[in-house]
Simulated scan of single mutants.
Amino acid sequence: MQTASKYMFKPRSDHKLSDLPTLDAALLKHQSKNKKDLVKVASEIGALQWTMYAEKKQSLLVVFQALDAAGKDGVIRHVLQGVSPQGVSTVSFKQPSASEMARDFLWRVHLRTPARGEFTIFNRSHYEDVLVARVHELVPKSVWKKRYDIINQFEQLLADECQTRVIKFYLHMSPDVQLARFKDRLTDESKNWKITASDYQEREYWSQYIEAFQETLERTSTPQAPWFVVPADDKDSRNLLVAEIIRDTLKDMHPSYPEPAADLKDVRARFHAASAEAKAIRKPKA
């Protein structure tokens, strides 16, 4: 998993988000072939996902977190281009409802985690409760500080009880690129629906969000549920990197097709008998 190791966030290291690149210069050199490579990798993801679905022994949960316009929707759309709709789901977590707010912060999330054989993508997730909740002081510090350990225990539970592999992506984007994408949403009618006044208001909290992401990655990037920091200023290289890490993760899970439940000798005999009968029916009369 060479690609994965390069972008994996390593706690207790000198990894500072403010210092990490938002563009991958090496990938930009091969920009013309990134889209072609993505099609191939997406197809490989599809084959591995289908095998895992048939196997029904383990599952994969992929989490995306980022600031607005970093490309969560775009990445998900491209990564899923080769998968079967069976056994795959995408969940987008919005502002909690009154019913959800009346329960613990993981309640609504646990309901949407993948069953064995499933591949689930979270577009935003339980991490909103240590990001937005922290930046906007929706809960006291004494509350959100405890949530890091609770999240780690939750993700360990998924691994232990359901053999769920969890991988998490932070799409790392520069402020200038975000502003350019906001402009694109204003000028492209097909993207007008994506822009809101709150997008610009949230930009005022950029440094607070980076600080919140920094601590989140440091506290919750674990062996059973690592974080990957993906340079997100260039869309094509961003999509390819995410796809490669997902593909490599599925390969590392070694899914395999289950043994057939039917007696193949008996089924083959029935097939040959049915074929002979069909041939006799088709044979023209003398």
Rank of each mutant, 00 (worst) to 15 (best):
F9H: 08
H254D: 10
R134C: 07
H172I: 13
K146S: 06
A269V: 07
W193V: 12
A286L: 08
V230N: 01
R165Y: 12
L171V: 04
F122A: 05
P140L: 14
E259C: 03
A276I: 09
Y209F: 11
L28G: 04
V79M: 08
I167N: 01
W193R: 05
L240Q: 04
Q153F: 12
F271R: 13
F9G: 02
A102N: 03
E259P: 05
A98E: 15
D14M: 14
I45T: 01
K94H: 09
L131I: 14
K146R: 12
T120L: 07
T120G: 02
W206H: 02
R134K: 14
L28T: 08
Q2C: 04
K191M: 06
D14T: 12
K194N: 05
F9Q: 07
Q178E: 15
K183P: 06
W107D: 01
H272L: 08
R108H: 09
V63S: 05
K29V: 14
E259A: 03
A273K: 08
D104F: 14
L28I: 03
A274H: 10
I150C: 04
Q224M: 13
E44F: 03
K36H: 15
D160E: 14
K285M: 15
L80W: 07
H110T: 07
D252F: 06
Q178M: 07
Q156C: 07
V166R: 03
F182V: 03
V130G: 00
S32W: 04
A102P: 14
S142A: 13
R203L: 12
F9S: 06
D234K: 01
D188G: 11
V139N: 06
A25I: 09
V230Q: 00
P11V: 15
P96L: 02
V143P: 02
R238G: 01
K283L: 13
W206I: 09
K279E: 13
V267M: 15
G117Q: 02
L217V: 15
M101L: 13
D160P: 09
V62T: 07
L60A: 07
D73M: 10
W206D: 10
P226Q: 05
A273W: 04
P175I: 04
L131V: 07
R270E: 12
I76F: 04
E155C: 05
R185P: 08
I281E: 10
P175L: 15
A225S: 13
I245W: 01
P175M: 15
Y257P: 00
A70Q: 07
S43C: 08
R12I: 15
H136K: 15
K279V: 03
K235M: 08
V91Q: 15
I281C: 03
